[in-house]
């Protein structure tokens, strides 16, 4: 990751005396955020209303955390597409967006999709949502030439579109086909989910919601309770307890990428 870059620009700003006056104006911004209600998600530590500038916010991504998901494929209702629709609506891609009308379906973004798995011998069938698995050892981050493909301290894997050159090597490397390349100019983006032509994108685990202490849109939309979100590192979180209790699978565990999205019932 290009930490180097970041530090450089920080130094420059300190020189220019910019950072010194940051606290005052930061409060102005926070004033607006303070009204936001705080949802207590499963496995998310309670965030007091008085401190909208929770630790997550001010100190940034917390390296003691590892955000993850447990998907119970037995609960995933056949034919249900709620998680996909919720993601589309939240992040402004696919149905409901006026963008990507020139691209064919194979070219349009797919942050999350439902996949049907059928055992060739037994005929047993499962349906499950498939998206960026937010690997602990993400191949996409390893291969990215510029460091645009990156992993936050709390395990969320993102694309830094500021320095993405659109080489698509990460898409070659991803075992889950979780990433999409934007094939045309966009105009209908959501303010919190920037995306644009010539860069690669994928599920962000709804990082903008997670940083506010909320759950990803797909998890919130799942009425059957098949999706559980939380901090895998926190032994007291609901997801950790469940992971300990039921057997879960990593998709393509053989690759050693150690995804943070786990599946049970497979």
């Amino acid at each position: 990751m290009s930490q180097k870059n970041m530090n450089n620009s920080e130094d420059k700003l300190v020189d220019a005396g910019v950072l010194s006056c940051q606290n005052k104006s930061r409060r102005n911004f926070l004033g607006k955020a303070a009204g936001a209600s705080v949802i207590i998600a499963p496995g998310v530590t309670l965030i007091g209303i008085s401190s909208a500038q929770s630790n997550t916010d001010v100190d940034g991504a917390d390296s003691s955390k590892r955000w993850g998901m447990l998907i119970d494929t037995n609960q995933c209702a056949e034919g249900c597409n709620d998680c996909v629709s919720a993601c589309q609506q939240e992040n402004g891609w696919g149905e409901g967006s006026t963008d990507e009308s020139h691209s064919n379906p194979e070219q349009q973004a797919q942050w999350i999709r439902t996949v049907t798995v059928r055992d060739k011998d037994t005929g047993h069938t499962n349906q499950l949502p498939m998206m960026c698995q937010h690997c602990a050892e993400p191949p996409c981050v390893d291969v990215c030439p510029t460091g645009a493909s990156m992993q936050r301290a709390d395990g969320i894997v993102l694309v830094d579109k500021h320095i993405c050159i659109g080489c698509r090597y990460c898409m070659m490397a991803c075992p889950y086909k979780a990433r999409s390349f934007v094939h045309e100019s966009l105009h209908d983006q959501k303010a919190y989910a920037p995306r644009g032509k010539g860069t690669v994108e994928a599920c962000t685990l709804c990082v903008h919601r997670v940083d506010k202490g909320e759950q990803p849109a797909c998890v919130e939309s799942c009425s059957s309770g098949a999706m559980l979100f939380g901090d895998i590192n926190d032994t007291n979180s609901e997801i950790s307890k469940k992971l300990k209790e039921v057997g879960s699978t990593q998709i393509r565990a053989d690759l050693g990428a150690n995804p943070s999205v786990r599946y049970s019932g497979l």
């Binding site: 290009s2 510029t146 080489c167």
Partner: peptide, 25 residues
């Protein structure tokens, strides 16, 4: 053929040294 050919300067100044692609550059 890059998605952002205009960012050539990024490609030659910002490196992820773990990337075989960066080594190639």
């Amino acid at each position: 053929d890059l998605g952002r050919a205009d960012r050539l300067i990024v490609a030659i100044t910002t490196y992820n040294f773990k990337s075989i692609f960066a080594w190639n550059i």
